[in-house]
Design a protein around this nucleic acid. Structure first.
Lengths: 218, 218
DNA sequence: ACATGTAAACGTATTTTTTACGCTAACTTA
DNA sequence: TAAGTTAGCGTAAAAAATACGTTTACATGT
């Protein structure tokens, strides 16, 4: 009976609102194979750990963050059929608040790459990153996961810019505003933007409790 | 380094249009553990097989069908931490045309259970079945996968009944018709229902080519 | 000091989509 | 032949999406 080593790979995604672009965290491989190449952060599943737990600890190691949005992407069976011990991998994707990252939490061997500037990745990592983005695009339409990527407080324009970047579209400012303000779980704060070269807008935040109250179970 | 045996479990789903209910195929376990219990059809991944390939062969074994809709559901890490060799599993779900099944293809130890009458399943199989149904509900909204479950030729009413069963809703016959007929990839045939105790309706079919032409890539 | 650029925040009008419901036609069964 | 059922056509109203007009409040450059 064949046995597998199981690796967990994490596609960690952030949104840089300054540059208005999505980013992925990559690390330089310190071990063979593919030593020195940029690749997805990952690790093997340890004895008593669940996949999810392994993924969470990779995330902690790379970003210093816990309790962030983390979901399974897909399991991959690398067809490394030459050996008796095959390697399988389970990919996870995570959405993190880019603004919350401290310099201290940044690993020496890690770097954030813009979505449109990812180097060629070893193994099936390129495929995983591409699939993660497809998944995220789909998910953003269905559930309010955007708010895991945006800062806790944000002006409406920042939200609009995010959608425009993600789907590569242009949205009408006035209609967008109307649509968002109808959502019961987006609340305006008594705070405005500062140091912007235009009329400062109010800041909003996502009220998760209200979202769960208002969303029907089916 | 810990190694895993990897099992593939298949949630094989069909739609019985006579009874207007979704069904799941279960098999009686012939080996320990849980011998004699109804469970998801499955098997271990063999040396040179991909997960997908393993799933496809399980599907062939159970239904006699190839080239059916088959997708990965999720990977599960059973926390059977007592042993050195843990078992992980990757669940797949499949949508099959219930009408196409021949009696010959029906396995001795297999049976189709109605969605609302599934026995308590061993391991995490109950969780997998539940998750598969959530996934299918979601998927049906996004993509025309219904047509993998319905017969190739179907009257509009059959399609409507399917939606009503899946989401447990009542749909207005006239509005439903209007909505469906606007879809360019649903084509009317020159054929009508037979032996129905009401005005016979035209049969329709799903034109996959037209779907792919008309669906935007984003 | 003032013009310029930019996005906020308010609005209206039009089009498109969804929903509610009326009616006749065509078939089987009692 | 009446009753029951779904097919297939239709209209009207309500809701959502889209297009676009206007004033306000800020920073920046001259």
């Amino acid at each position: 009976m064949i046995h597998f080593k199981i690796a967990i790979d994490c596609v960690i995604v952030g949104y840089d609102s300054q540059l208005n672009e999505l980013k992925v965290l990559l690390t330089e491989r310190v071990n063979e194979p593919q030593k020195g190449k940029w690749a997805l952060p990952g690790g093997f599943v340890k004895k008593t750990e669940s996949f999810e737990k392994t993924a969470a600890s990779i995330l902690l190691r790379e970003t210093g963050m816990t309790n962030v949005y983390l979901r399974q992407l897909k399991a991959y069976s690398l067809t490394d059929a030459s050996q008796d011990n095959r390697i399988a991998s389970v990919a996870y994707y995570s959405l993190v608040k880019f603004e919350n990252l401290t310099d201290a939490s940044r690993q020496q061997y890690s770097r954030w790459f813009p979505w449109n500037g990812i180097p060629t990745l070893p193994f099936d990592h390129g495929k995983k990153v591409a699939f993660a983005f497809e998944k995220i695009k789909e998910l953003v339409r269905l559930e309010p996961v955007v708010y895991h990527l945006l800062p806790t407080k944000f002006p409406l324009n920042q939200l609009q810019r995010f959608y425009e970047a993600l789907y590569n579209i242009k949205i009408d400012n006035r209609n967008f505003r109307k649509k968002i303000l109808k959502l019961p779980y987006i609340e305006r704060l008594d705070e405005v933007e500062k140091n912007v070269s235009h009329r400062p807008g109010y800041l909003y935040h996502f009220n998760e409790k209200k979202y769960k109250e208002n969303s029907s179970p089916y």
